[in-house]
C-alpha cells in the first residue's frame, strides 16, 4: 500500500517537473551529424616541403543547438582513428600503427565541447576536450555558423551547417614519432579544418 502511494506521488512529481522544464527545452534542437556532408580535414608538414592533407572517413557526432542561447549549445564528435585517409593506402596503414594514431589500442578520438563564446553574429570560439591516444587536452576551434534551414532539394530535412578551424600539437598527446617540430621532420602542429552539417531529429 505504502509502495503504491510512493509510486503515484513520484509520477505526479515527474509530470509536473517535465511540464515546468518543457518551455525552456523547446528551444534546444538536437542534430545528428550527416556523415555524407561532414569532413574532418587535417594538414601536417611533410619534412617542411609541403603541408599534406588527410581526413577521417568514419566519424559520428551530434549537437544540441540552442538558437536563443548559442553558448549553451553542445557538440560531441567521435572519430574512428583507423579510418585515417591521406589518399595513400600504405601511408594510411602506417598512420594507423603505433607510430601515430595507434588505432588498434585507441580506436577512437573524441571531442566534447565545454564552452562556446560568441565573437560575432555568426562566429564563435568553441572550446572543448580533445581526447587522442588516451590523453585529454583542451582544444579551441574558430567556428562559423553558415546556414540553418530546410534542405533545398528534399524539402524534408532541417539542416544546420558550420565550418571550423583550429590546431593542436600532436606531441601534447604523446604522438612524437618522426622528429616533430624539427626542420626536415614531420610537423608537430596539426591544422584542422572541419566542415559539418547536422540533420535535426
Amino acid at each position: 500500500m505504502k509502495l503504491k502511494k510512493l509510486v503515484s506521488a513520484a509520477s505526479v512529481a515527474a509530470v509536473c517537473a517535465s511540464a515546468m522544464v518543457s518551455p525552456a527545452q523547446a528551444e534546444v534542437e538536437h542534430y545528428v551529424l550527416d556523415p555524407a556532408h561532414t569532413e574532418t580535414l587535417f594538414f601536417i608538414s611533410h619534412l617542411g616541403f609541403s603541408n599534406m592533407p588527410g581526413r577521417f572517413a568514419e566519424l559520428e557526432g551530434e549537437f544540441h543547438y540552442d538558437k536563443d542561447n548559442i553558448p549553451a549549445s553542445k557538440v560531441t564528435v567521435t572519430v574512428k582513428t583507423g579510418s585515417v585517409d591521406t589518399f595513400h593506402e600504405k601511408r594510411d596503414k602506417h598512420l594507423a600503427s603505433p607510430d601515430f594514431f595507434n588505432a588498434a589500442e585507441f580506436p577512437e578520438m573524441t571531442f566534447t565541447s565545454t564552452s562556446i563564446e560568441m565573437t560575432g553574429d555568426k562566429t564563435a570560439k568553441m572550446t572543448g576536450d580533445l581526447t587522442l591516444l588516451g590523453v585529454t587536452k583542451p582544444l579551441t576551434l574558430d567556428v562559423t555558423f553558415n546556414r540553418e534551414g530546410l534542405h533545398t532539394f528534399n524539402k524534408k530535412d532541417h539542416v544546420a551547417g558550420f565550418s571550423a578551424t583550429g590546431s593542436f600539437k600532436r606531441t601534447d598527446f604523446g604522438m612524437g614519432f618522426g622528429m616533430p617540430g624539427k626542420p626536415g621532420g614531420i610537423g608537430d602542429e596539426v591544422e584542422l579544418r572541419i566542415e559539418a552539417e547536422g540533420i535535426r531529429q
Binding site: 595507434n102 589500442e105 585507441f106 591516444l133 588516451g134 590523453v135 606531441t171 604523446g174 612524437g176
Partner: peptide, 13 residues
C-alpha cells in the same frame, strides 16, 4: 625515441 608521457596511458607509453 618515444619521449616520456606521464601518466602512461597506452601500452606504447
Amino acid at each position: 625515441i618515444q619521449g616520456l608521457i606521464f601518466p602512461p596511458v597506452g601500452s606504447t607509453h
